[in-house]
């Protein structure tokens, strides 16, 4: 069995956050849609719209988190490499 490099563990930890972020975005926007539905009597149109929007935004965040901006790597220091210690 090969030992996991600290860098892999860090990536794993950071990416574990993305799942919660995805779920929260989806849940929050669906909930806001549900509240708007109750207010305007449009059930379930706005909840569905919120959930769809949440799914889209959540997926965008997921993509940004995994691949980063313009493929330069996610939330990494300059050069995408661990800097000199």
């Amino acid at each position: 069995m090969t030992r996991k490099e600290p860098r892999d563990q860090r990536d794993l930890l950071r990416q574990s956050h993305l799942g919660l972020q995805f779920a929260l975005t989806l849940g929050l926007l669906a909930f806001l849609g549900h509240l708007a539905d109750e207010r305007f009597g449009t059930t379930p149109l706005l909840a569905f719209l919120g959930a769809s929007l949440g799914f889209g935004i959540g997926f965008y965040q997921l993509h940004q988190g995994v691949y980063g901006r313009a493929g330069r790597g996610p939330d990494r220091p300059p050069g995408g490499r661990d800097p000199e210690r």
């Binding site: 919660l20 972020q21 929050l28 926007l29 935004i57 965040q61 940004q64």
Partner: peptide, 17 residues
Amino acid sequence: VIEVISHLIKPTALMIR
């Protein structure tokens, strides 16, 4: 708008976790 929502979701995820 999407990025602003993302920025707001991050601390929310910290709080909830």
